[in-house]
Design a protein around this nucleic acid. Sequence first.
DNA 1: ATGAAAGCGCTAACAT
DNA 2: ATGTTAGCGCTTTCAT
Lengths: 342, 342
Amino acid sequence: MAAKRASISDIAKELNLAVSTVSRALSGHSRISEATRKRVWKLAEQLNYQPNHLAAALRKGRSNTLGVIVPHIDGHFFALVMKGVEAVANKAGYNVMLCQSNEDYEHEQKNIETLINAQVDGILVSLARTTRDFKHFEKVRKRDIPLVFFDRILEGVDVSAVVLDDYQGGYQSVKHLLDQGCRRIAHFGGPQHLNIYKNRYAGYCQALHDHNIPFEKDLVVFGDMTLEDGIRSMNQLLALPQRPDAVFSASDFSAVGAMQVLKQRKLRIPYDIALSGFSNETFASLTEPMLTSVDQHCEEMGGAAVRLLLEMVQERTKQLSPRKIVLQPQLLPRESSRWRQE
Amino acid sequence: MAAKRASISDIAKELNLAVSTVSRALSGHSRISEATRKRVWKLAEQLNYQPNHLAAALRKGRSNTLGVIVPHIDGHFFALVMKGVEAVANKAGYNVMLCQSNEDYEHEQKNIETLINAQVDGILVSLARTTRDFKHFEKVRKRDIPLVFFDRILEGVDVSAVVLDDYQGGYQSVKHLLDQGCRRIAHFGGPQHLNIYKNRYAGYCQALHDHNIPFEKDLVVFGDMTLEDGIRSMNQLLALPQRPDAVFSASDFSAVGAMQVLKQRKLRIPYDIALSGFSNETFASLTEPMLTSVDQHCEEMGGAAVRLLLEMVQERTKQLSPRKIVLQPQLLPRESSRWRQE
DNA sequence: ATGAAAGCGCTAACAT
DNA sequence: ATGTTAGCGCTTTCAT
């Protein structure tokens, strides 16, 4: 029963060698005779030796584990990011420890503690929507644990991060709507303390400005970007004396909410009102009409974030100054915004 | 810089106590004077002491970490399961290490090694679609690491698992379609070596049988359950001399594929052909018509799986015989299958 | 090329 | 109630 696992010292005893020799043989040290190396490896196989990472980690002070904190894992975006994270991390020999903050600041603080205690070698974070300060990251800094943010970061804080050019995403979306002939373009925006929503909004504003469309305050509605929020916001817009002829939503969910309202009111999409969303959720190509959206290259973002983090982990000595990587978004025009369908 | 972390022995030295005393004070041991306990905690706070879990794990032989292997994390189901897993695990003081097998057998084997090396206290697995044997789990058994499967398990192997009553899900779906007046009900089925698809199919067969509907081989199409597969399968069915009047798909994705074909051919859903899927993906309530589906209580499944696993972890001594927990599915009738809409 | 020995930070058995 | 001590399995310096 209970098969005790073979250790280096077991192998050493069996072969009449010193543990240090066995350790070196196993880790491919150069100053070990070919003969010894072979004997050791053979017995290791036989005994089905598995290295005890915990012990190695304790000794070396590194755990070969990366911690990741995401607001939530349901939904397209973070799931795909995790795919990229995992792929790159595993290839580099690192494990991944996952925490969800549930969009909650307090929870995020706990997550940080958890990861510090687990002795992770580096931390990847995308902020909870309710996070507005940086206190809990001070601990991480103090311990000199490499830290990389992705997607959602706090405005005005100088940290390493991998982000999407949300400004471009917003700009292109609005430009596309303008190209279709829309002139009164509304915007569903998210919490403005988060870079992503702020930048999408900024892109919207700039695109209007560049095309000499006057900005109308009434056409911008802020909310929490859920489907229900989209319903609420759309109804609010339709109650205006003069309704918009397009909506650029900073989220696919609220865009779909708007879509439901429009369909229910028998307004034609895109002819009466065109619609575009953000994130290219799975369902974006399954709605009717299919929803125009912005792809965020999620997997790539995850991969890039890990690569950046590993660089920092491996060159811990040199205090590198914070680096930012900006990925370009890709507009995917679909039926909800295109007047002429191919 | 590089803030060295305070250790128990640091605290002990500072307070002129033995490390064991400090350790006990910190872990709430009963035989420690209130005064000492307070002094220790106070200094611990001051020094911002964080326990070194690695060391504790090495010493105790337990890492307080659970490993989870999922086929993939994108898509509704596993993402929600992970939510449940994480919630329960964290509450019980365990961390979660996540691996994705990418639906690949080889990858799954690697994942197992990874988790064993990481010294996890227990492993949760949902099998890759390409996994057909059990060899790689023998190592886990030999090491006596508690192992719990969820959702996807191998047929005919006696293991602890948390599964959905897929048979019921299939049965109810078909019964519902029959209740709507459908008589020629087709089925899109998945790989039959996986319990979930086999049972959904079995439920389909039994429901037909119970209602005296003859089984027709041509109405059953097996595939890989993707959207494209649904398109292919639907076209295949429409080429039959006599077409079906309903399809029960074992996946929402292939159901949506079918939906696209039907819409394109101007067949009315549900009037010409009714549709029902499985898994209640996010998009199921966003298609037009909204897709009837079966909810799997994903979060609950994740939670139940962890609870079962933790039981095994905590009572490791007593070799419990494998336990199965079966959750009941919930049919969600929507427009794609209902003749009379409320 | 190999060995001896120290120690990572913690817990727990065994004192007192 | 507190102290002493051994050791979890590994890596690494210093010898030889």
